[in-house]
Design a protein around this nucleic acid. Structure first.
Length: 424
RNA sequence: GGAGAGGUGGCCGAGUGGUUGAAGGCGCACGACUGGAACUCGUGUAUACGCUAAACCCGUAUCGAGGGUUCGAAUCCCUCCCUCUCCGCCA
């Protein structure tokens, strides 16, 4: 959610900035609703104030056994007028709220303006894609060839867009997870957290998945609607929902390993084969809660933390600054890490690192006490994949294949696999 | 699943319809006392929204959430959520 006061005061500029990301703000409608709201709210509060006064007087007079019939009559009139105003106000406020929750975040000034991913800007590259003398296979052929990746079994059990991993590949996925967690906790100062994988609606509103993206989520049936997390961002960031954090406790740095569940609505036909786009995948997620002035330093740091994993695994990648038109709903600035996939002869997203500024914090009422103002102010939130484990497994499989279809285990990973050097 | 108890400010805790946003205590902040500190004393100490250029002031709302009764609800009624205890079941 944007800062409402700021939005009211600079609605035209805000509309222009939102336009760069393809969102058209209904200025006339919002302005009209706001002025209606203002009138109704002032009226309603005045009436409430009068009613409170009357009630007090009635109480005092009754205590003295005086007659209060005239006051009662007056109070009754007020209440009628009040309930009328209140119902109007509630309606207008609900409508405003609906609009506000629908507005995406403002892009940071440094974000390149563009319409689609075509206009994302490459920031830097690391590593050289290996020139494989043989025709590189994709992870599906390799995995199935080894008998360790089984999409048929997954389809039988659940359906398309799932995978069964066996033996050393299942082991390697676990190894990757441990490897990532160790680096982030031991070298980058993150606190590991274990969190629920099923969350309530409030949490999803907090981080911005709702109300707009309901169809992307898996929800479970029942009276008490819970949703499978699409990313650990949801439960981890919501740790600070409705909290006021003392300045000395910032920044908070969390790392969590969780499965992620995505319905992949609207992605029919994209990456339907293999492990790139599944309904269920593993991810190690980094989350930071910081003071506003530290947000963009933190974004650079967090991005570099994710990069470390790729570097240790010696996987070639590039860092992309997403353009205004390609950024996620809640983000003010996003870097994507894209890893080299030989089979596709291109870089593919493996991590997304974003700064949300106060956008999520306002939705969540996550605040810190600013020592300068002594007032609670929204914190800034960030997160990034560090990394998507399933896609990392794909990248390792494809980049470390040899001409015989075997997978060499990256050196950094060998200690996590009892020294196994080759999967065959 | 069965039976019971309970949810009040940062924490503890009083409060069963009327100047209660809420006694008292703890904690915290500031001040006085002191050479300095402890002790002691004094003062202050919720959040959101509205009003405002902004701040103060002021107003409104909030005692788990929502609804109801009433001139007036932390207090009465209904629904839901959550926590705890015992039993059962169980990774």
């Amino acid at each position: 959610m944007l800062d409402i006061k700021d939005l009211r005061d600079h609605i035209e500029q805000t509309a222009q900035r939102l336009a760069t990301r393809g969102y058209s703000l209904n200025v006339a409608k919002l302005t009209a609703l706001e002025s209606t709201r203002k009138l109704l709210q002032v009226d309603a509060q005045t009436l409430q104030s009068t009613r409170n006064d009357l009630a007090k007087q009635i109480g005092q007079k009754k205590a003295k056994k005086e007659n209060v019939d005239d006051l009662l009559a007056e109070a009754s009139n007020i209440n009628q007028a009040l309930s009328d105003k209140e119902s109007q106000l509630i309606q207008v406020q609900a409508e405003l709220e609906k609009h506000y929750l629908d507005i995406p975040n403002l892009p940071h000034d440094s974000v390149p303006v563009g319409k689609s991913e075509e206009e994302n800007v490459e920031i830097r590259r690391w590593g050289e894609p290996a020139q494989l003398a043989f025709g590189p296979k994709d992870h599906i052929d390799l995995g199935e060839g080894l008998g360790l990746m089984d999409f048929a079994a997954a389809a039988k059990i659940s359906g398309s867009r799932f995978v069964v991993l066996r033996g050393q590949l299942a082991r390697m996925q676990r190894a990757l997870t441990q490897f990532m967690l160790d680096i982030h906790t031991k070298e980058h100062g993150y606190n590991e957290v274990y969190v629920p994988f099923l969350v309530n609606e409030k949490s999803l509103y907090g981080t911005g998945q709702l109300p707009k993206f309901r169809e992307d989520q898996f929800s479970i049936a029942g009276d008490n609607a819970l949703t499978l997390i699409p990313t650990a961002e949801v439960p981890v960031t919501n740790l600070v929902r409705d909290e006021i954090i003392e300045a000395q406790n910032l920044p908070l740095k969390f790392v969590a390993h969780t499965p992620c569940f995505r319905s992949e609505a609207g992605s029919y036909g994209k990456d339907t084969r293999g492990m790139i786009r599944n309904h269920q995948f593993e991810k190690v997620e980094l989350v930071q809660i910081v003071k506003p002035q530290d947000a963009y330093t933190a974004l650079e740091a967090l991005t570099s933390h994710a990069e470390t994993i790729l570097q240790r695994l010696k996987l070639p990648y590039r860092v992309m600054a997403l353009c205004t038109g390609d950024m996620g709903f809640s983000s003010a600035k996003t870097y994507d890490l894209e890893v080299w996939l030989p089979s596709q002869n291109q870089y593919r997203e493996i991590s997304s690192c974003s700064c949300f500024e106060a956008f999520q914090a306002r939705r969540m009422q996550a605040r810190w006490r600013n020592p300068e103002t002594k007032k609670p102010e929204p914190v800034h939130t960030l997160n990034g994949s560090g990394l998507a484990v399933g896609r990392t497994l794909v990248a390792v499989i494809e980049n470390y294949q040899d001409s015989e279809g075997r997978i060499h285990v990256p050196e950094a990973l060998q200690p996590y696999m009892d020294g196994v050097k080759i999967i065959q």
